[in-house]
């Protein structure tokens, strides 16, 4: 799949200009246009990241221990980016309280995601301590 920056910029500018024009002419169509442009760009991002994720999975396959941890990190990055996107959208619509709540939810989800890692690390340390007789 070949996507170049020029096309992406063009799509983004057209989307933004369309939304700006519609704000003046037909205000009720502004939001769907902005949403379409954002979702379109996001889909392109996901398609572009495909080969990177595939390559990373190959790398992680070489080391099972690192692979498990790396998968969690990738998911955390994904959660952070989506949350940021969603909260920005909410702020654009003039509802910052929803944006803040979404960011809090994102942070809690990341925290939940990190719990297995944290418990593995703590289990290992307590295992090492009991192995040494403490």
């Amino acid at each position: 799949m070949e996507i170049n920056t020029l096309k992406l910029c063009g799509f983004a500018i057209v989307g933004a200009a369309g939304a700006m024009l519609l704000r003046e002419v037909r205000r009720e169509f502004e939001l769907p246009v902005r949403l379409t442009a954002t979702v379109g760009l996001l889909t392109v991002c996901v398609l572009m990241a495909g080969p990177i994720v595939k390559y990373a999975a190959e790398l992680f396959g070489l080391s099972p221990i690192a692979g498990e941890a790396a998968t969690i990190v990738l998911r955390a990055v994904g959660i952070a980016m989506l949350t940021r996107l969603g909260s920005d959208f909410c702020r654009d619509m003039g509802v910052p309280s929803v944006a803040a709540a979404l960011e809090t939810a994102g942070k809690i989800e990341m925290l939940l995601l990190s719990l297995p890692l944290l418990s593995t690390a703590l289990d290992t340390i307590s295992g090492l301590l009991s192995q040494s007789g403490l």
Binding site: V73, A76, A80, G106, K107, M110, S114, L117, A121
Partner: peptide, 17 residues
């Protein structure tokens, strides 16, 4: 705060490994 959370998880991943 989201960036802090992501970097915490990445540090935790290295520490756990």
């Amino acid at each position: 705060s989201l960036s802090d959370g992501a970097s915490f998880i990445s540090s935790l991943a290295v520490a756990t490994t």
